[in-house]
């Protein structure tokens, strides 16, 4: 059932959608690395991320933003993928800290991945070890900009290149055993 809107109406509608998406970012509660320690200050009274509509959510079904707060151990990566796949479109990933970008100080560790965007699509990287709450908020604002300009299409990228991502993921996760991603 295709409803054809007027072109302008469609544009307005999509702008409203983007605006709503950008102004209400629900972050899934997942402290994956040491960056998790800067999340409480970001969310609480000093920096108050709720001003920007950012708030926590308990389960991936309700969440919009997955924060990868730092390095990912191989064991965690598996769970992160699972969590990411359970989130509903549109979904965004913000990666924290140098260790998600290039391994950071754990470049030679046998248990942490070095390049996050090989495994899940990352919309915004925040560098630093660890990024300050201001940087985190700036990262969110950057994400909001991307959403408003319809550039935060990580999920679409993931859907298109699922095979490639899967190959990379399976390369380090030996025992896969996960329900298939079906949307």
């Amino acid at each position: 059932m295709e409803i054809t809107y007027d072109k302008n109406a469609q544009e307005i509608l999509s702008t409203i959608k983007s605006f709503a998406r950008k102004s209400s970012l629900w972050v899934i509660a997942y402290g994956t690395g040491c960056g998790a320690i800067e999340i409480p200050p970001t969310m609480t009274s000093r920096y108050d991320a709720e001003r920007f509509g950012i708030r926590g959510s308990a389960t991936p079904r309700q969440a919009d933003v997955l924060l990868i707060t730092g390095y990912l151990a191989v064991k965690t990566l598996k769970r992160v993928i699972r969590t990411y796949e359970q989130m509903q479109d549109p979904k965004y990933v913000i990666a924290f800290g140098s260790c998600t970008i290039n391994g950071g100080m754990y470049w030679d560790s046998y248990n942490t991945i070095k390049l996050l965007d090989k495994y899940i699509p990352v919309d915004v990287y925040i560098n630093g070890c660890m990024p300050r709450p201001e940087a985190v908020i700036q990262g969110f604002i950057k994400l909001q900009e991307l959403i408003m300009n319809k550039k935060a299409e990580g999920a679409a990228k993931y859907k298109e290149n699922l095979e490639w991502y899967r190959e990379n993921q399976r390369k380090i996760i030996h025992n896969w055993r996960m329900p298939e991603y079906n949307w």
Binding site: R79, R82, T83, D89, P179, W183
Partner: peptide
């Protein structure tokens, strides 16, 4: 049902939020 009816996805009950674990 009409709204985004194409994007409504049915999943099995095994595909639930179990804190990321399988």
């Amino acid at each position: 049902t009409i709204k985004n009816y194409r994007s409504t996805r049915y999943v099995t009950t095994k595909d639930i939020h179990t804190s990321g674990e399988v």
